[in-house]
Simulated assay, not measured.
Amino acid sequence: MNDYNPRSEIGILNRKGKLAVSPEVREVILRAIYFSRITNGAFDITVGPLVRLWQKMGKEKRLPTQRELKDTLSLVGYQNIKISDSMVLLGKEGMRLDLGGIAKGYAVDKAIEVLRKRGVKNALVNAGGDLYCLGKGPSGKWKIGIQHPRNMREIFGIIRVTDKAVATSGDYRRYYVIQGRRCGHIIDPSTGWTVQNNPMSVTIVAPDCISADALATGVFVLGLEKGIKLINSLPGVEGMIIGEGMRVVKSSGWKKFEVDGLTERMK
C-alpha cells in the first residue's frame, strides 16, 4: 500500500490508472471512500498529487502558485475512484492515491485480529502512534499519553482505555517552514493548502484503528467546530481537539476516559 514503492499495488495503480487489486487493498480503498463521504471530502486518499506538490515546495522553499494549485487540485476527488469487483479505476490521468492517512490503522487492526485468533487477551499494538489497546495493561486500563503539540518534551495529558483504538494527527512532527510560514503535512483537499495552526492536534478514540486513523486526519482538516460536530454524530467515537492558543474542545463522551473529570496529567 506504499505509493512510493513502484512495485506495490498502489504504486502500480497510480502509474497505470487501472488495476485488479487484492481484497486487502480493495477493502482499504472502500473504507477510505466511506470516510471521505462522512467528512464531506476532508479526508481524501486522492490527495497524492497535492502531497507531491508540497514536497516539491518544501525542497524549493517556496509557496505554490495559483496555477500550480489549480492544476493539481483538478486531479483530486474521491468521486473519481471507480470500483468494480477487484478492478479499481482512477478516473483522471495523473491521479494518485495516498493511503498514508489510513493504511497504518488498517495494519494495526489486522495485527489485533491475528492476536485475538491466537488467544491473546492483553496487548498493545502501535504503528507510528496509531494504536489499539487490547484488554488491559500492566496496571489495569492502558494509559496513553497525548503529545503536547508545541512542547515536544511535554505530555499534554493521559487517557485510560481498554479495547479501543487511539490515533492522533498533528502539525508538530512533519512540517515545512516556507517564507516564515509553518506548513504542516496534512492538506485540505478542497483548497490544496496545508492546514495551519488551527487545529494543532486531534486525538480520536474509536472501536477500530482504521476509523481512528482516518477520522483523526479528516477532523484535523474540518477544524474545531465542524470536527467536534462530526465526532459527536458517530456512535462509539470520541475525540479531543487542541486548537490555536491551546483551546481544547472535547466530544460529549470524552470524559469517560479522563480521571476526576480532567485528562490525567503526567506526573
Score class of each variant (00 low, 15 high):
I83T: 09
N197F: 13
Y172A: 11
L63M: 15
L73T: 02
L124H: 10
N151F: 12
G77L: 06
G100M: 08
R182A: 06
T162G: 15
Q55A: 08
G137L: 08
S74D: 13
Y175Q: 05
K92F: 12
L134S: 09
I186N: 00
V125N: 05
D130C: 07
M152W: 12
M57H: 09
Y172Q: 12
D109W: 07
Q55Y: 13
G180C: 07
R96P: 00
K61N: 14
S190Q: 13
G170L: 03
M95E: 02
L69N: 03
Y132C: 08
D130E: 15
A103T: 02
K56W: 12
A107H: 02
L63G: 08
Q79W: 11
R62K: 14
V76M: 01
D109A: 07
I144A: 01
D98Q: 07
G135I: 06
L124I: 14
A165K: 02
K92L: 15
N151C: 04
G91H: 04
R182P: 06
Y172H: 15
Y78M: 02
I155Q: 03
Q55V: 05
K110R: 15
K104N: 03
W54E: 06
E154K: 15
G192M: 01
N126T: 09
I159N: 02
V76S: 02
D188Y: 11
C133F: 05
K56P: 00
R150P: 00
Y106T: 03
R173Q: 14
A107G: 11
G140L: 10
T168F: 04
V114G: 05
L90T: 08
P149G: 10
N122G: 11
L97N: 03
K92S: 09
L124M: 14
D98K: 02
M152F: 13
M95Q: 06
T65I: 10
R174N: 13
K136W: 07
G184M: 03
S139F: 14
G140W: 10
L124S: 08
G100A: 09
L134W: 05
Q79V: 10
N197L: 08
G128V: 12
W193I: 01
K141D: 14
K121Q: 14
K61L: 13
K104C: 05
C183V: 15
R153C: 03
I178P: 03
M95T: 05
L73A: 05
Q147E: 15
I144M: 02
Y106V: 02
I112K: 05
E60N: 12
T194N: 15
W193V: 00
I146W: 07
N126G: 08
W142S: 03
K110A: 11
G157I: 02
A123G: 08
K104W: 05
K136L: 15
N122F: 12
D188I: 08
G119W: 11
E93M: 11
G184Y: 07
S201W: 01
P138Q: 10
R62T: 10
K56F: 08
V166T: 03
E60V: 07
W142I: 05
V76L: 02
D109Q: 09
G91S: 09
K141Q: 11
D71W: 01
V177R: 12
I155L: 11
R67V: 13
Q66R: 15
W193R: 04
K110Y: 05
I102P: 00
K61I: 03
